[in-house]
Amino acid sequence: MEQTAPGDNALISVRQLSFSRGNKKIFNNVSLDIERGKITAIMGPSGTGKTTLLKLIAGQLYPDSGVITVDGLNVHQLRRAELYNLRKRMGMLFQSGALLTDMSVYDNVAFPLREHTHLPESMIRTLVLMKLEAVGLRGARHLMPNELSGGMARRIALARAIALDPMMILYDEPFTGQDPISMGVLVHLIKALNSTLGLTSIIVSHDVHETSLIADTIYVISEGRIVDHGTPEAMRQSSSPWIQQFMTGAADGPVPFHYPAKDYLDDLLPTGKRY
């Protein structure tokens, strides 16, 4: 499964990535490719460092070893100004939305445009309304972030992420904590934006069903390694019992229901006595 040469069409390639936090190894020699124009999902149980992977790709964290290249640039060798230039071409959707709470929806979407361009206010207005229309929330432009529902906040954050017309978007758990309708809206939006804007999307998620609907490729990560990768269909057909458990959500399997502990009977009974 270890690829050595980057795929021809890879926008992002990760090679021999290792990263640890304290004594815990989050990634151990991970290699993967994200193809241009596709939707790639990174899946795995909570706490396997999926969000950490996004932060590594975006250059917010530095790996212990290994190389991550985005569009031919080695993220962790870039100087600060170059890294910031690269980030202008990446959008990231945080789990919380990360909207600036002291600004209205309109100003939030206008924020990257005002920071990075010298466009006249009339053109910024046109762009902001276009982006808001794309996520269906043009009518909500006067609201403040605390007046938004979780699903709306995420859509606004998505409008902000596409404000600078990036080449790729990183989604951090886009479906977590959403009602079925907003979930459906987000699934539709991610798919539609990816094809209409010619984006490359990376979704980090553990919502198997929604992610399988739109992903072109799924990587499943567990305990710092890539367990398997392929199309959603291939994952469902996988012979690995671990993948089967993950995809179907069975309570017990290769990933045990119980946290490691000493023998149950020994734990309940007074020490040393066994009847």
């Binding site: 932060k55 975006a58 202008k88 959008g91 945080f94 909207l99 600036l100 990257p112 920071e115």
Partner: peptide, 8 residues
């Protein structure tokens, strides 16, 4: 960190 991701 959202701001950092927007290169601000």
């Amino acid at each position: 960190s959202g701001m950092e991701m927007m290169a601000v």
